[in-house]
């Protein structure tokens, strides 16, 4: 599986993502800097977590308008799979590749802990290896992960089974509407999520709960 990780100033989870993709996929992803106008041909593009542009204006707002995003959009339009994690999810939403908005956590606190994550859709490229109803432990680390969408958008997301991850009951760390932790676009090739599955795949992480997500990438490719 060929993959690429796009980088913006202030992104800080790219090494974790690189390690996860290399450990499970067996091939090293290519890094692509935000000023590039092309992304090499690949099966998967990942927008990792961090604090691109210091979260200025709104989280992900500046990064979403960088040159590399035009290339990412072209690839996504052609069906290349795109995964956004944490700040990457915020960037994909700001770029309009996923619907809704990610707002300040309802309790105003930066949350850094493990949550229980329920798999709601096992037909996406990132959840093929899981079953609906599976609950995994997964770390979160964010201050702006409070998912919001207007009632029409929310209804569409729910009706079309586009909620991929939900915080399990009692585990919602940020006030997200309908406990939404991750969603997929209409075409099914762009997935965004707030939690960090790349930090739950090795015994040294404490558990390997999220390894099947990365293994799904291989089966999907």
């Amino acid at each position: 599986m060929k993959s690429a990780i796009v980088l913006f100033p202030g992104i800080n989870r790219e090494r974790d993502m690189f390690k996860a993709l290399t450990a499970v996929g067996g091939t090293e992803p290519k890094f692509v800097w935000h000023t590039e106008s092309e992304i090499p041909e690949c099966d998967l593009i990942v927008v990792p977590g961090g604090f691109s542009y210091g979260d200025y204006l709104r989280c992900g707002a500046i990064a979403a308008r960088c040159p590399v995003m035009a290339a990412l959009r072209r690839h996504a339009d052609h069906g290349v799979r795109v995964l956004g994690v944490c700040n990457g999810f915020q960037i994909l939403i700001e770029a309009g590749l996923l619907p809704g908005a990610l707002m300040r956590n309802a309790n105003l606190r930066f949350v850094c802990k493990h949550v229980r994550l329920s798999i709601e859709n096992s037909s996406t490229f990132f959840t093929l290896g899981m079953s609906v109803g599976d609950v995994v432990s997964c770390p979160v680390a964010h201050g702006d992960g409070n998912f919001f969408a207007d009632p029409d958008t929310l209804e569409r997301l729910e009706k079309d089974n586009r909620v991929v991850f939900r915080y399990a009951e009692g585990s919602n760390p940020n006030g997200s509407i309908n406990d939404i932790a991750g969603i997929v676009n209409e075409a099914g090739n762009v997935v965004g999520m707030m939690p960090h599955p790349e930090n739950m795949i090795e015994p040294l992480h404490g558990a390997t709960d999220c390894r099947p997500l990365f293994e799904s990438l291989l089966n999907a490719a």
């Binding site: 204006l57 308008r65 809704g100 908005a101 969408a149 207007d150």
Partner: peptide, 9 residues
């Protein structure tokens, strides 16, 4: 529309 405001919210 394009940058300064997020018109979703």
């Amino acid at each position: 529309q394009k940058l300064l405001a997020n018109t979703v919210i």
